[in-house]
Design a binder for these strands. Structure first.
Lengths: 205, 205
DNA sequence: GTCTATATGTCGATAGAC
DNA sequence: GTCTATCGACATATAGAC
């Protein structure tokens, strides 16, 4: 009897775990493929090939290509600790340089994993509503936190604090991006030191 | 007679002029389309439609899509005055702030035309040999000029002048890009002032 | 649940009428 | 010289066998 044969077989592996592993494999493969080919040329066939599953299977786990990039981006955004760092130092008695260093270091850490992929995600991600909105919201959250910090910290003497907040946010995010991802990659410690010096000096002036 | 009918018609317009105008129309249309849709989704059909010519005609003027972007990029690069500005101020007795302001202003001016298109060209331009090489060369030329300036100017006291040159180059290029192109566009004068303050202070520290 | 084979759509580019 | 109509290549996504 079929039913009895089934009973004789060992229990199946728990499905959720295997499925989750496959999803993870797809994401890892996609990250490599996107980083190497860019989003447009990073085809689903290549992703499936790299994950060593068939294209048909891939579509059992993700409904379309955008969804794969969206999940990669979501996971990155979830790992962002910038807001947390900024808020921890708000109204703190720490010297300005300490605060700025913590901020810069957090941004750097957020980008050490796979700088090239990050660039792809930010530059070529499908400019679709929801996700783009979330990125913008995070960006402005960071600017808002910075602005409060600038207003609250006694060492800060820069006049136009609103413009300063935007400039600092952009400067750190963009230079970290570019200089970490660039071929003749800069030494990360130096980058941190110089960025901290530049920004701290500017805010105190 | 057909031949006689032809003779009765007025002389044709000079061809080169008309052709050059059409090329220009295509470029303008392409600039708008690329800026709005990005490079991949900025299809040749859309470009032709916007230029109000047929797709077939478009291919009489440019051999392929890349060539259109290439010409847009070439025209932009030809208009770049950064190197010129930096060299004019090398070993000059002008105060550091004056020199930096001229530099920042030149970069800003280079990007006022169509910031969104610029972003597309730099981020999504086909990473093909020749053009990419030219961009990289210009970038390192700028860094080299900056480094010499830093070494030669008496007010500059920053220690790690090589890293500083890279950081300054990246900071100015990237923040100008982003902050001019961004939706809640920043006031250009403020951007200039704050950038100048930040960089000058950093270099003198 | 995974595979192969293929449908479906869209792009860049071309052919050929006018 | 400009157009319409269409080709060939390639991508995403699906159907159906196993």
């Amino acid at each position: 009897m079929t039913s009895e044969q089934r009973r004789l077989q060992p229990r199946k592996q728990p499905r959720q775990v295997r499925a989750e592993l496959t999803r993870q494999r797809i994401l890892t493969a996609a990250a490599h493929v996107f980083a190497e080919y860019g989003y447009a040329a990073g085809t689903t066939n290549r992703i499936a090939e790299r994950a060593r599953i068939s294209i048909g299977s891939l579509y059992q786990y993700y409904p379309n290509k955008d969804a794969i990039l969206a999940e990669l981006l979501t996971r990155h955004l979830d790992g962002d600790r910038t807001t947390e760092t900024l808020r921890r130092y708000k109204e703190s008695p720490e010297p300005l340089e300490t605060v700025i260093r913590a901020f810069v270091r957090t941004v750097i850490e957020n980008h050490l994993d796979d700088p090239r992929l990050l660039q792809i995600m930010i530059e070529q991600a499908p400019r679709s509503g929801e996700l783009l909105e979330r990125i913008t919201r995070l960006e402005w959250e960071m600017i808002g936190d910075l602005r409060e910090l600038l207003h609250g910290h006694p060492e800060v003497r820069v006049r136009d604090k609103d413009t300063a907040a935007r400039l600092v946010a952009s400067t750190v995010e963009l230079t970290v991006h570019q200089l970490i991802a660039s071929p003749g990659s800069i030494d990360v410690t130096r980058l941190e030191n110089e960025l901290v010096a530049m920004i701290t000096g500017y805010l105190r002036a």
